Computed example of a mutant assay.
Amino acid sequence: MHKRVLLTGAQGFTGQHLIPLLQAGGWEVWSVDRSNVDGNMVIPHAQCLQADLLDDVALQAAVQQVQPQAVLHLAAIAFVGHGSADDFYRVNVVGTRHLLQALSTLSVKPQCVLLASSANIYGNSHEGALAENTLPNPANDYAVSKLAMEHMARLWLPQLPVVLVRPFNYTGLGQSPQFLIPKIVEHARSKAPAIELGNLDVDRDFSDVRDVAAAYIRLLEHAPDGNVTGKVFNVGSGRTYSLREVIERVQAISGHRMDVHVNPAFVRANEVRTLRADTTALEQAIGEWRGHPLDDTLRWMLQG
């Protein structure tokens, strides 16, 4: 008998890569999404239900129909430059609370409720490798909403096996070009003569979306033994690359060189030089899960 997992955000960048990995692991995937295309949501290989996170009645009905053994909650307003600050709080905090409320009414509770937070909660004032006990210092509404979501979710721990993840930067095929690496890749693929970027000499932790998805699934699989419940885990590559290095790698793999212009409007004030994930806690919990070096990720994206 298949294990049922309820996935929110299935149509998003991460969700699309999670579904085939979940199925390969024997999970029957059910998605809950607010959108509906001609009465049928187009999410291959998943059972699809329509319910908005802000519609607690519809969400309750969907959860009761699925009766999931596990939950992966990825749905969120995730782009920091999103136009409405209110949306961050409505969807990321209130919407998540509606989901937890609905799950708490199940007669048989899921074995794991994994909630995607963000390394953005650490802000831009800590240098070097950041562990989960780093003091949060969110610097925008998105990050504040994710930290608020974490605190709210802990209120449900007596009732639900909540696990929190804080992914650092990750990328891959299908990510929107409004994000940094897809923007560089798109410029290289289209053989653009030039590109405008921000500070080229900051070092950041970049993961492959397939590795992030693998980490999430490993946590689902380890949840029944109780060793991950109630904990928060950084998810990252544990390595850093400067933006300048990323550009050089893209140009070397693609064979296309372009002029790189630093636009002062893209440069953040007082930006720390190096940020990377300390993933010791996650490695101790699930073992090694990373299998895609940055060059492999960039080739995958360039070949598209």
Rank of each mutant, 00 (worst) to 15 (best):
Ala58Val: 08
Leu157Pro: 09
Ala119Trp: 07
Gln11Asn: 15
Gly128Met: 08
Leu157Tyr: 05
Arg244His: 08
Gln16Ala: 14
Ala58Lys: 10
Asn36Trp: 07
Val108Arg: 14
Thr105Asp: 11
Asn133Gln: 12
Ala119Tyr: 06
Ser190Thr: 14
Leu7Glu: 14
Leu49His: 13
Val250Ser: 06
Asp259Cys: 01
His73Glu: 12
Pro224Ala: 04
Ser31Cys: 15
Lys183Ile: 00
Ile77Pro: 08
Gly255Phe: 09
Val37Tyr: 12
Ala277Trp: 03
His17Ser: 11
Ala153Asp: 09
Pro136Ser: 03
Phe88Tyr: 11
His17Ile: 03
Leu157Thr: 09
Asn270Val: 09
Met152Ile: 09
Phe88Arg: 01
Gly174Cys: 09
Ser207Cys: 01
Pro158Met: 06
Val91Pro: 11
Leu298Ile: 15
Val93Phe: 12
Ile43His: 07
Gly123Ala: 01
Gly198Met: 05
Leu197Met: 09
Asp203Asn: 06
Glu245Met: 11
Leu164Ile: 12
Leu294Trp: 07
Glu186Gly: 03
Arg244Leu: 02
Thr134Gln: 01
Leu6Pro: 12
Cys112Gln: 06
Glu132Asp: 14
Leu21Lys: 15
His82Cys: 05
Arg244Met: 02
Asp203Met: 06
Leu275Glu: 03
Gln178Leu: 11
Leu180Trp: 09
Thr274Val: 13
Leu180His: 01
Val165Asp: 04
Phe13His: 03
Asn199Pro: 00
Gly230Tyr: 07
Thr240Asn: 05
Ala265Val: 04
Ser107Ile: 11
Glu28Arg: 13
Val108Gln: 15
Ala51Gly: 11
Val66Glu: 08
Leu59Thr: 09
Tyr241Phe: 10
Leu53Lys: 05
Leu243Met: 08
